[in-house]
Each structure stands twice: as structure tokens, then as C-alpha cells.
Design a protein around this nucleic acid. Structure first.
Lengths: 345, 345
DNA sequence: ATTAGCACTCAATGATAAAGAGTGCTAACA
DNA sequence: TGTTAGCACTCTTTATCATTGAGTGCTAAT
């Protein structure tokens, strides 16, 4: 199964030429541009072997060869030379991130923008997973006598608001008191824990005063409900239009299929929900989503304080500049994790 | 200038046929499908007149006629029969809106989804304009001894958070006190007014206590800054991919140009920032943005308590189903305004 | 093992012809 | 005088067919 050295070089040549030109690569081209001391005929023989082994394929008899998914896989795993980003690009990322202030969602959206701008493919990112962070502060605010606003701040700097409707007015003092108790009892719990908390037990902690219990019973279930609701997936994507520049999407129907996938947030979430620590490359038919069988996806996770809380990814054709995209994704997750951790302190 | 009745009918026939088929319309078609008691020859004569008057044009000699922008304009203003939505569609809108709970941005995004789903064109919407609403409640929350969270609730139910960094710890009691004073002084002011408030004057109101003044001086400028910042345009769009189904975008380059416009939030904001009360139809070259010279835009404003706070719009080819889109936009703004007003109460 | 040579395949290109849709104009008609 | 049938004309669309050229696989020579 181990490929001879020359076969490796030829495969690499074919893949890199194809990545650059999107045209099937012939033996002549390989001989002229890559392995100048080997004749086309020899290369043809090797190519026939490579095809038999499934690394490359031929669109039709009189065309050059095109890498198969298996070919790309080998390339990504073993052949490709990984070169780091240059200083300029590195700087670019930092600078673009610096421009954003304020809410965390903006930061994430900016990451998505940077990612698609640098790669010229489509980017997708998940917002920090709320439930993986833990409660730092809870504030109940009486907006008027029908509405209470609950503000939740978590350690990763995520802020969530939710309005709680109430039937009867609640006295200021009581609400404040409940707020204090809740903060005291709940601080530090992860949101996931919080969502499953035992209301009855908490009630006991509030003490015997009937008004307190009443208010708690009114407010808490609604709050938990709101939490569960706001847990829903938040996925952003950017740069889809970039793909229209690529010859593989000169067919409008293909482009449309692709865009439709990008609009299905649940699908995207699935794609990104891989919680491995490393950069993951999914090539062509390795994708579970059949609409993406001609696409490759490169994902990585970002974290806060060493805890993985979200992912970013790049979606493009299988003919993707793997090396470059991997470098970019790598750099970006690191910057993102860094900035997140810094923001909070 | 007034068009004879028959010319009107012919123009209407041409436009409606063209809207449905995207094919140039010939005299034979008009005679057969629309004006069955008039011969093609007669219609040819009329069409020659209409062309001379600039209402229709000919892609080339041996093709039928196509409406010009001027033709569409007349059609929209005078010829088109406006038919209301049927009960089902009406129901659909209400139902889809009901599905959304919680934050106002979600409601707006949902409006955008509904709009593009029903029209099969691209939709764009602006989030409620923060500065046109007025302060209902301000809450300053000490998250930790370096960060204060300011939560602003306005009468239209918009909630904004912003983190304020501080160098020195602030005592709980003082912050609470300041919070009370600010609420008392600022409640009811519009955000626009708030952004231009006189800090010195407020300082006087706080009274002579030096700590209060210090805190106010630290917190308020940052708060106003955050307000100004969060005032930035928020525009959502949806359904861009719908346009790929239309023959006018079978040319990928055109599609790309269109998508690029949709990614320029500032441009979109300009488009929507028309603050007239009615539904506005902008046809083809009437558009200031030259990339949209082949597009039509239908916009309308939504309001809260009778105050206009945002707009929604539909962007499609000039060959647009004007009547239908207008009905949908109309219905949607009404529903939206209604729901907004209800939510707040 | 490598390579030159050659016949073969097949998509892409381009030229040409035929078909078809629609027009404008003229002359006849009510 | 407005309407219509008839017809020549224009121009796009479509199909057909030959040509070109890139690339291959195989064979025989090195």
C-alpha cells in the first residue's frame, strides 16, 4: 500500500496543479512543470497505477487526471507541506479582531468575516455554547409591573436577556432579596447544571416566608424555560458568494444547492459539532450531508480558559487550498481563544 | 400622454405575460391570450406606438417586446390590479410570527424569513431603530470589580447590554444609588436625546457627595459611548438564494454582483432608510445604487405605537410580481407593528 | 526500467444550414 | 379611417458535421 516516492511526487503534483487551475492534469504538464527529469510516458505509466489504486480519476478518456477524495485524503495526511502564514497575514488577523469591541457575538461574526475574506471560501462559526459556561451573575430587574427582565452573565462573558411575564406585581424588596439568594445559590454552576436544577430544593433554601416562595415559584420556571430556549443553536456564516467565483459553481443549480445548505442552521450546527480538539478535515464524500459530497470542510474548536466552547469552519470545494486554509483556521482559533480569555479578565 | 384604453390593455398584457414567463411577448401571444378580439396586426401597430412612447422595448428585431422601467412604473401606478392576500396566506403570516418568542431581533429575523419565503425574492429588514425609542429602564450591574454591565430597556422592548470597564472597584451601595438617580432623571428620554445629554448638568443633580460624582464621571461617558456605538445599523437579509431560480440570474456574474450588494450592510441601510409612511416601489434605474439597475425594491415601514422605527423590503428583478409582493409587504408590516405593540404591553 | 512513437478517443470549437418567432409594411376591407 | 391578412425580411436558436487538439494506452526500441 505504501506509495513509491515517485508516485507520491506525481500525485502531489497532480493535486497541486489541479487545485490551482481546476483543469484535469495531463502527463505532459506533470513532466514539464514538476518532474522535469521524467518523461511523460513514464508519468503516464505511474498515473495509470495511481488511478488503479484510486487516488486519481479520469473525467473521460482524452482528459488528464483529477484527484479523487482518496487522493486528497492522502495528500492532506501525508504529502502536503504545511507552511505557516506569513507575518502580514498574521498581523491582518490581529488587527481585524482589534476593531471589534463589545458583545461576544460581534467577535464571532468578525471571526467569520475574517475567515471567509482570507480563504475566499464560505465560513461557518458557532457562537459560544452558552451551556458550557458557568453563571457569573444573575440579575432580575423589574421593568414594569407585568415584566421582569432577567440578565444572565456567564464567565465567558456571554450575556443573555430574557423577559419574564408575571400576572401580579412583585414588590421591589422581595425581588431584590430573591435575586440575592439566587445569586448566592447558583453562582458558579454551569448553565447546563442550572437548566436541570431542582426547584423544590431551592425553595427550601429560600426559607419559610410565603411571599418569597410564591415569587420564586413564579419566576424560576420561566427563567429556566428561557434558558432552555436560548440554548438553541446560533450559527453564523459568511462569504458564500465567494464560491461563485469558482468554476465548480458556474452551474447555478450547484450554487443554489450549496446556499440552501448554508441556510439550514441545524445542518451547519451538526457539521460543526465535532468536539475533537484538533483541526478536522472532511473531504468530499466523507461528509455525512450528501449535498456536500463535492465539498471539503475544515473545522477547529475555540475555547475559553481551556474549555472548548465553540467551533469555526471553512467550507469549499474538494479542490481546496488545504494547506493555506488549515493555517488560517489554526491561527484564527488561537487568536479567538486568546481574545476571549483576555476579554473576560 | 394619456394612453388609450386599448394601449393600456396591451401594455398590461405584455407586462403580466412577461412577469410570468420572462420571455419577450409578441403580438400573436397578446392577441391569443389577452385581447382575443383584436388581430395581431393591430396589436403590432399599437406596440410600435408603445415602444415609441418608451413603455416597452425590443431586445432585437425578431423578438417580442419587453417592458421598460417606464412601463413598469405606469403599470404599478395605474394599470395593475391590486388583489389582497387570501385567507390562507394571511393565516400563514400570523402563525409564523406566533412561533417566535423572546428577543425582538428574532422577531425581525423571522419577518425577513417570512418575507423571502412568501415572495421567493430576497428580503431585507432593519432592526428597530434604537434611538427612536425611549428609555424605560436603566440598570447598572456590578459583574466583578473591573466590569459593570449596563442594561438598557426601551419602551419598544429593545434590550441592549454593554460592558463598562472600570479601573477601581465601586462600592455596591454607591452604584445602586447612582442607578436610582439616573433612572429617575433619564427615564422617558429618547435614546437620541440621551446620547446628547449634558453630563455636567447631571452631575449637579447628583448632589455634592464626591464619591457619587466620581462614579458618575467614570460610568456615564462610557455608557454614552456604548450607546453611540450600538446605534450602528443592523440589517438582516434572507432568501438571496431564491434569486438563483430566476432566469435573469442564470448568469453567475450577475448573481455575484447581487450578493455583494446584500453583504454591504451600509448600502442596504441606505435603501431602507426611506422614512415615508407608505409602501414605496423603486423600479430599475430609479435605484440610486447602480448595481441594482435591473432590480426593483419594495419597502415599507413598521412602527411601534404609531412611531416608525424600522423598515422591511423585498429586492428582486424588475420583472417582479409587484401586486403580490406589495400585498405581502403590506400585510407583514401591519402584523409586525401590531405584534410589537402587543409585546410591549 | 525508461522512453519515443503512434494510433486512438473524445471533448471543445467553429462553421454552416435550417427552423422559427416576430416584425414592419403594403394593400385590401368594413 | 381603423382594422386586418399577407408577405418579405431580420435575427436568434438549434442542430449537424467536420476539425482540432489534448491526452491516453500500447508497442517496440533503448
Amino acid at each position: 500500500m505504501a506509495l513509491g516516492r515517485r508516485k507520491q511526487l506525481i500525485l502531489q503534483a497532480i493535486i497541486e496543479d489541479y487545485i490551482n487551475t481546476a483543469e484535469p492534469v495531463g502527463s505532459r504538464t506533470v513532466s514539464k512543470k514538476y518532474l522535469t527529469n521524467v518523461s511523460p510516458a513514464t508519468i503516464r505509466n505511474e498515473m495509470a497505477d495511481l488511478e488503479e489504486m484510486g487516488y486519481i480519476e479520469q473525467p473521460h478518456t482524452s482528459a488528464g487526471r483529477v484527484p479523487s477524495d482518496k487522493g486528497y485524503r492522502l495528500y492532506v495526511d501525508e504529502l502536503m507541506d504545511k507552511k505557516a502564514l506569513n507575518e502580514q497575514e498574521y498581523e491582518y488577523i490581529r488587527r481585524e479582531f482589534m476593531e471589534v469591541v463589545g458583545e461576544i457575538d460581534l467577535l464571532i461574526k468578525q471571526a467569520s468575516r475574517i475567515l471567509s475574506a482570507m480563504t475566499k471560501y464560505a465560513s461557518i462559526v458557532t457562537a459560544p455554547q452558552f451551556k458550557r459556561t458557568s453563571l457569573k451573575h444573575l440579575q432580575l430587574i423589574k421593568v414594569d409591573n407585568r415584566n421582569i427582565l432577567a440578565v444572565i452573565v456567564t464567565d465567558a462573558g456571554i450575556i443573555k436577556n430574557s423577559i419574564i411575564r408575571i400576572d401580579n406585581d412583585i414588590e421591589d424588596g422581595i425581588l431584590e432579596r430573591i435575586n440575592k439568594i439566587l445569586n448566592h445559590k447558583l453562582m458558579g454552576l454551569s448553565i447546563a447544571e442550572l437548566m436541570n436544577i431542582d426547584i423544590a430544593k431551592l425553595e427550601a433554601d429560600v426559607g419559610p416566608i410565603i411571599e418569597y416562595r410564591q415569587v420564586l415559584n413564579k419566576v424560576l420556571p420561566e427563567l429556566l424555560q428561557a434558558l432552555r430556549y436560548s440554548e438553541r443553536v446560533e450559527v453564523f456564516s459568511d462569504g458564500a458568494a465567494n464560491l461563485l467565483d469558482l468554476p465548480e459553481y458556474s452551474d447555478v443549480q450547484k450554487a443554489k444547492d450549496f446556499f440552501n445548505v448554508l441556510n439550514e442552521n441545524e445542518l451547519l450546527y451538526e457539521l460543526l459539532n465535532d468536539v475533537s480538539n484538533n483541526i478536522t478535515v472532511t473531504i468530499g464524500k466523507e461528509n455525512k450531508i450528501h449535498q456536500l459530497k463535492d465539498c471539503s470542510l475544515i473545522t477547529a474548536t475555540y475555547s475559553y480558559n481551556g474549555k472548548i466552547i465553540g467551533s469555526i469552519g471553512v467550507l469549499g470545494p474538494t479542490r481546496m487550498k488545504y494547506s493555506r486554509v488549515i493555517s488560517i483556521v489554526d491561527c484564527l482559533t488561537q487568536s479567538l481563544s486568546e481574545i476571549l480569555t483576555k476579554i473576560v479578565k
